[in-house]
Amino acid sequence: MPVVKLTVNGTRYEEEVPERLLLVDFLRERLALTGTHVGCTFEGVCGACTIHLDGEAVKSCLMLAVQADGHEITTIEGLAGDTLTPLQAAFREHHSLQCGFCTPGILMNMSDFLRENPDPSEDEIRRGLVGNLCRCTGYVHIVRAVKDAARRMRGEA
């Protein structure tokens, strides 16, 4: 069985994995990092399993664990330090969680999005969210939080 060596949320892991093990299942079942969710289960359209691979948002259900060998991964558990990130704080304040199932994936995608585009328009935010389904359909609150977080991260009041 192949051995993968990778860093997840700053911790080095070395694990034997079967070739067919999905990265999302490795994170959830081997490392017990269950904040990365499984929504659509195979089409790769819901975005609940979004993580950062070397800093970029990708869907962990469309990768095998063996493909992550040598890479650095951040999951929702590794996003905040001692305090919530401005994006997480904005989600709490704007009631953007609702049932919360899609939230980890959206936070991972939007934190990468705001790094790329620190001053997005509402249209750009909505387009950035296309890969994340919220079945509570509460996108209004989510868009508002992302916009507010961007403002705070730019140092505006």
Binding site: A57, V58, K59, N109, F113, G131
Partner: peptide, 9 residues
Amino acid sequence: VGDRQVRNR
């Protein structure tokens, strides 16, 4: 194409 996550891979 697709969405941000898809375009990243």
